[in-house]
Design a protein around this nucleic acid. Structure first.
Lengths: 204, 204
DNA sequence: CAGGCGGAGCTAATAGGATTAGCTTTCTGG
DNA sequence: CCAGAAAGCTAATCCTATTAGCTCCGCCTG
């Protein structure tokens, strides 16, 4: 029997494709092995197991995602940059729902998985210059980025999970949300009551 | 051997508790059976199986959640109502992370699960009067509710999944997000460009 | 109080997925 | 050509879900 030519990268890529088609929760070694026409234990020569494969998919997705966002925002500023990033965000999630879902669970549990954490944060840091472009105070940066991420992730997650009911008007709703974000960042209250608890914490 | 006194409601409740403690994805019949000190197949006398149990947990969670939100908003108006609802939303998710996660997957797949859909929507409709209180045009209602839901769900989901990194300053960030929502609804552009695509679709 | 019936919980058995151990075969470098 | 590393396989174990069919508890009736 000829070798199947598996590699860690090929296995991860195929797993990611499977996630996009069937959902991240349906990822299984059995399904991946079937796609390659190999026996399940063969995969262990290339990946550490199901959990490891999930992490691999998540890391690859984080890299892809960060790149897509970065490319979208390049050469744009302020509202245009935010609009482009938001569109890229949603487009990525819709084109790669399984990868996007994987990305979420790539969030670092404190104390472990430092390597994954680094990759994950890179996919978040892309938003920093975009938000900075609105000229906000540094103390507000983390809160604002968290707000932007919340809005985008929430919309995309609800959309993907069918939480919006019938899909009619979802594109328009997204435009509305993005424009609301633009106004929010433009009119940010530099020293409003909302800052009372801001302590410039880590993360974001 | 004395009977364990299982009932559908008791099994669902224990399953929900297990979800909150270990995560919705860790829910298994084996774990639930162990908690009751019964054999796994015994559970089938009370629930239809793992999938059915997940649905039961989701439905119960949806009802609880809707009630919590409704109670919070009662007797309040406009910004106060929104703040109270937002706080209740986050509080519920933090107190019952597994149930909240279950709720998300309760989103109705089109064409099936009509009963679940009804319960699910009830947990969304609670926001309608809250948003209405801001005096927005009816055409904008769906988009605005979707925006509010996106922001709240996104924040809560990122917080629960550890997506915010170290948990420092998360409370403050949530206040910032909620106040941004309040300003957004107050200053809503009644006939802005953002409405160009709004078509008054279903769902939300 | 005895009989009996419904149903709660059990054991046994099947199926599918993850994982480990250890074997075989296939490339590749010398 | 050949020797070894690595790729892929089979066998075996464990865990979970699910179905089938049994048993015996406990109430309800006569």
């Amino acid at each position: 029997m000829p070798r199947a030519g598996l590699t860690p990268a090929a296995v991860t890529e195929e797993a990611a494709r499977l996630c996009d088609e069937q959902g991240f929760d349906r990822l299984s070694l059995a399904a991946v092995a079937k796609r390659f026409g190999v026996a399940v234990p063969s995969l262990y020569k290339h990946v550490g197991g199901l959990e490891a494969l999930r992490r691999e998919v998540a890391m690859a997705a984080a890299a892809d995602f960060a790149q897509a966002l970065g490319r979208a925002a390049i050469g744009r500023a302020e509202a245009d940059a935010l609009r482009a990033a938001a569109r890229a965000y949603r487009d990525y999630a819709r084109a790669h729902p399984g990868r996007y879902a994987a990305l979420q669970q790539a969030a670092p549990r404190p104390g472990e998985d430092d390597e994954g954490a680094a990759v994950f944060y890179r996919s978040v840091e892309v938003l920093v210059p975009v938000v900075r472009g609105f000229g906000l105070a540094d103390e507000a940066l983390i809160d604002v980025i968290r707000t932007v991420r919340s809005a985008l992730h929430g919309f995309v997650d609800l959309e993907l999970s069918g939480g919006f009911g019938l899909p009619q008007g979802v594109d328009a709703s997204f435009d509305v949300l993005v424009e609301a974000l633009v106004r929010t960042l433009r009119d940010w209250p530099v020293s409003a009551a909302a800052q009372e608890g801001a302590d410039g914490a880590h993360g974001g």
